[in-house]
Nucleic acid binder design. Sequence first.
DNA 1: GACTATTTGTAGCAACTGATACAGAATAAT
DNA 2: ATTATTCTGTATCAGTTGCTACAAATAGTC
Lengths: 195, 195
Amino acid sequence: MARSLEFDYTTALERGSRLFWETGYSNTSLRDLLKKMGIGEGSFYNTLKSKKNAYLECVKHYNATVNRKRGEALFSAPTAAAGVRALFQTVLDCLDDPDTPSRLCLMAGSITPTVLAEPDLHQYVEQQMSMVANGMVARLTADKDAGLLPEEFDPQIVVPILITYLQGIWRMALVSYNRTRFERQIDLFLTSLGL
Amino acid sequence: MARSLEFDYTTALERGSRLFWETGYSNTSLRDLLKKMGIGEGSFYNTLKSKKNAYLECVKHYNATVNRKRGEALFSAPTAAAGVRALFQTVLDCLDDPDTPSRLCLMAGSITPTVLAEPDLHQYVEQQMSMVANGMVARLTADKDAGLLPEEFDPQIVVPILITYLQGIWRMALVSYNRTRFERQIDLFLTSLGL
DNA sequence: GACTATTTGTAGCAACTGATACAGAATAAT
DNA sequence: ATTATTCTGTATCAGTTGCTACAAATAGTC
C-alpha cells in the first residue's frame, strides 16, 4: 500500500548514537548527524520527527546494550561485592577501549543542563537511573539476606553513593585518565564501603 | 594619553560569570553575554579578546571567591574530618541557595568535552583541580601527622576519591536534589572513608 | 495500468553564531 | 589647543542552526 524504508533503521540509530556519544547532544549538528546516519532530511524528519527525539531513541538504543553488559557483570559474579567491582571494571574497560567515541559515556553525557531542560529527556534519564539503582539494590540486598554482607550494610544508601561516584569518574576521566590510578582509587573506595 | 574604560570591569565579569554559570560555555551566546554585562561588541573584544578568553576570566574570578570560601570551611574547622564535612556543607548550601544561577557549579560545569577541547581551558581546569586537591591533602596530612588520623589513612588516595565523588554530586543534583537524602549519603560516604 | 500511501532528495527558510571593520567620541600628555 | 591613543556603538560579515515545503520516486492494492 506504500513505499518501504530505504535505509536500515537500527544501523542508522547506531551510527547516530556514536556521533551523539562523540560530540554530545547540543554540539551535534543535524547536518553531521544526517551524514553519519547516511540519510537525508526527508527520511530523518519522517521517521525520527526531531533532533530531540532522535537523541532519545539513540540513548535508548545505547542503554539497551550497555545496561545488559553492565548488568551481566553485576549479576554473574559470585558475590554482590565482586559484581560491583566487575561493574566498575567494565567502565574502565570502556575508558580504555581505543575506539570508544568519547571518555564520557553517552548516558553520563546526558546529565547536562541542556539535555535535562527537555522534559521528556529529563524524565527518561531519571527513570533510567532509578532502574539501574534498583538493579544494584536488588543484588546487594540478596547478598545481605544470604548473610554475605553485614547487618548494618544499607543498600538503599550505598547504591546512591556508588552511582554518584561513578558519575564523578566519567567527569574526572575527561580531565585526565590513568587506569592504575583509577583502579587504586576505586579499590579503596569500595573497600571502605565494605565491598 | 588615552581614553579610559567606561564600564566597571569587575562587575561586568561578575555578571558574565553568572550567565555562564546559568547556561554553560557553549550555550551562552555572545549577544546574551553582552546584554548581561551591559557592554557592546567594541568594548568586549577590546578588553576580553574572545568568548573563550572571557569564559576563562569569568571562571578565574568565580574560583577566586568560591575557593576562598571552601578553603575557609576546610581549614578553620577543628579537625580535618570536620573540615571536609564543612566543605561538603558549603556545597549543599550552594545547591539550596535560591538565587544560585544553576545546580551545577561553574567549575563543575567546565568539565565538559567542549570546554576541555580548548587547550588553555583544559590546562587551567586541570591546574585548578590539582590546587584544590593539594589543599585537601595538606589539611589531611597535617591531621595525620598530629595523630588525629590512623596510620593507614592515605590522603593521596582519599582526596581524589573525595573530589571524584564531589563531581558526581553536582551531576546527580542536576537530575534530582533533596538535601536530607544527600546529607545522609555524604555522611555514610565520609564515615566509611574514616572521616 | 490506475489509484493511493508513503518515502526520498532538493531547495530554501528565518534565526542565530562568533567575530570584525570602522567611524566617531573621549581621554590624557604635550 | 593639538596630538596621539584608546574606547565605544553601529553595521555587517560569512557560516551555521533546526526545520519545512514540495515535487519526484517507489511501493502495494484494485
